[in-house]
């Protein structure tokens, strides 16, 4: 049964923020290794919102053409992770990860594939770290490169979601020296959210012990 309402307690939110933080730190570290520059991260913003509101938030947030690497995950909790950046940043990112060894033609040729691999590394390290923290394993799909506006990228209704709640995660990253900016976003549906809540409680119990 799908719970009508799943609310995260303050501590659960803290725990989730921390876990995402760890995952994203790891992802940032991966990105740093790939491009050799400092990567700046924002504090993750976590919102539990209705699906319709999420759709609205997304369409509000994203109006320009974007490039995204999308990876779906499944397991005890499932959802979708995206690495998103403006289309204008895409070639710069490819240039950064290929380390200036490729010609302009080669960069263009490899753009799609390079983006997929970059997304793969970043999203995988983030999700895998989170899975490890919660002591569960997740199955990740092959990364997919998408172009379009925000609403299209998220396609919140694709899996037959029925207007329930979704967890919406949002972390900025920027590589200043390279003029690359973007963000990592994650959407989780309701059954996942309920499971996630349980896992978070387990995690909290393990960490906090008698202090909780």
């Amino acid at each position: 049964m799908t719970p009508e309402q799943v609310e995260l307690s303050e501590l659960e939110r803290d725990a989730l923020t921390e876990i995402v933080n760890i995952g994203v730190s790891r992802a940032a570290s991966s990105l740093r290794k790939m491009i050799g520059d400092q990567v700046l991260l924002s504090v993750p913003s976590i919102e539990v919102v209705s699906q319709s509101r999420a759709a609205r938030l997304i369409s509000e947030r994203e109006v320009v053409d974007l490039v995204a690497v999308r990876q779906d995950f499944s397991g005890p909790f499932s959802g979708r992770a995206l690495l998103i950046f403006p289309e204008t940043n895409s070639l710069e990112l490819v240039r950064a990860v290929t380390g200036g060894e490729l010609s302009a033609e080669e960069v263009l040729e490899m753009e799609h594939e390079a983006l997929a691999e970059t997304g793969n590394v970043i999203l995988n390290s983030c999700l895998a770290t989170m899975a490890n923290m919660l002591r569960r394993s997740l199955t990740m799909t092959i990364p997919e490169v998408l172009r379009g506006n925000g609403a299209m990228l998220f396609e919140v209704d694709e899996r037959g979601g029925n207007g329930g709640l979704v967890l919406f995660l949002y972390i900025d990253f920027a590589v200043r020296m390279r003029d690359i900016r973007g963000y990592i976003a994650m959407l989780m549906d309701i059954p996942s959210l309920a499971t996630l809540k349980e896992l978070l409680d387990e995690f909290i119990a393990g960490v906090v012990g008698d202090d909780a």
């Binding site: 590394v121 999203l123 995988n124 390290s125 895998a128 990740m140």
Partner: peptide, 24 residues
């Protein structure tokens, strides 16, 4: 070689007698 650094994957790699190297 993978960015999927889940403990599960690492142990599976060990089972087939392979080393585990994180991406990148």
């Amino acid at each position: 070689i993978t960015a999927n650094i889940q403990d599960e994957i690492i142990s599976q790699a060990r089972e087939v007698g392979a080393a585990f190297i994180a991406k990148p």
